[in-house]
Simulated assay, not measured.
Amino acid sequence: MIRPLALVTGGCRRLGAAICLALGEAGYDLAIHSSPSSAPEAALRERLAAMGAAWHHLTADLADEAAVEGLLPAVEQAAGRMPALLVNNAARFEYDSPDTVTQGGLLDHYAVNCAAPVLLARALAATAPAGRPAAIVNILDQRIAAPNADQFSYTLSKLALSEATTILARQFAPHVRVSAVAPGLTLPTPDYDEARMNAAAEQMPLHLLPGPAEIAEAVVFLARARAITGQTLFVDGGAHLRHYPRDFLFLDGDAEA
């Protein structure tokens, strides 16, 4: 039996690698996308091989419309078939605020975080064969529930992708399902030491932060959930239930209810 194929953008490391591993365990072969400067981590390659998942590495600059348009044809050429699942995980993430935002910064974030996922979703929906439904899972961010001004361009682009998820779910039904996962703070950047991560966890309603495997598990669930479309699963320790006036990196006190 041929394993279904999943395309995971930004799948070479961090959360993307965790998603690839969970999908490999769930019976998928992988088309692992990265920027031209990246490659799959050795641990990811070894674990996929051990579980019998075939994988192909493809590169594309998601800020380049032509590269985005060429990604699915490249996947089909490499794997011999089109994906049954698209996980739009890749993201641009840079700091700005309403005081420092520029048109270029807005457009750079929008291109990678919203435009590319929408174009890839459209391309998959156009090629999904009748009788073999496809699924799309967009990776959002818990901050869409109560946005603050930090990472302003990033946040706006994720809000746009959240609304696109709902619109595309309506547009592509019944043949293609479109859903989303909204993670909370999960893997620290260099700005977070252990003390800051622990402090952030204490500000969550559940007093914990999600692990990459829990977010990947939500992706697998939505990939398999034939009766679900247009839904967003928040995997965030309950962060979406509160309003945080700043990014977690800058918080010293309690969040607002």
Rank of each mutant, 00 (worst) to 15 (best):
M1P: 14
I2E: 14
I2V: 11
R3H: 13
R3P: 05
A6Y: 01
R13W: 12
R13I: 10
R13V: 07
R14P: 09
L15W: 11
I19T: 04
C20R: 01
C20S: 00
A22H: 03
A26K: 05
A26D: 03
G27A: 10
A31V: 05
I32N: 02
S35D: 09
S37D: 14
S38R: 09
A39I: 08
A43G: 08
E46R: 13
A49V: 08
M51I: 07
M51N: 06
M51F: 03
A53W: 06
H56N: 11
H56G: 13
D61M: 14
L62D: 04
A63D: 12
A67H: 12
A67G: 10
L72R: 03
V75I: 00
E76Y: 04
R81P: 02
P83D: 02
P83K: 09
L86A: 07
N89P: 09
N89I: 11
A90T: 07
A90W: 03
A91T: 13
F93L: 14
E94M: 12
D99S: 15
T100P: 06
V101I: 15
G104V: 11
L106G: 06
H109I: 11
Y110L: 15
A111F: 10
A115P: 07
A116H: 04
L119I: 08
L120H: 00
R122P: 03
R122V: 07
A123M: 04
A125R: 12
A125W: 07
T127W: 11
A128H: 11
P129K: 13
A130Q: 10
P133Y: 04
P133N: 13
A134R: 08
A134L: 10
I136K: 08
I136Y: 00
I144Y: 07
A146D: 01
P147E: 10
F152P: 00
S153K: 05
S153I: 05
T155D: 01
T155Y: 01
T155W: 00
A160G: 14
L161T: 04
S162K: 15
S162V: 04
A169H: 05
V178D: 01
A180T: 12
P190E: 00
Y192A: 06
N198D: 15
A200Y: 04
A201C: 02
E202R: 15
Q203I: 09
M204E: 02
L208N: 06
L208G: 03
A213C: 06
I215D: 02
V220S: 09
F221V: 05
F221R: 12
A223D: 00
A225Y: 00
A227N: 04
A227R: 13
T229S: 10
V235P: 03
L241W: 15
D252N: 14
G253R: 02
A255C: 07
A257R: 14
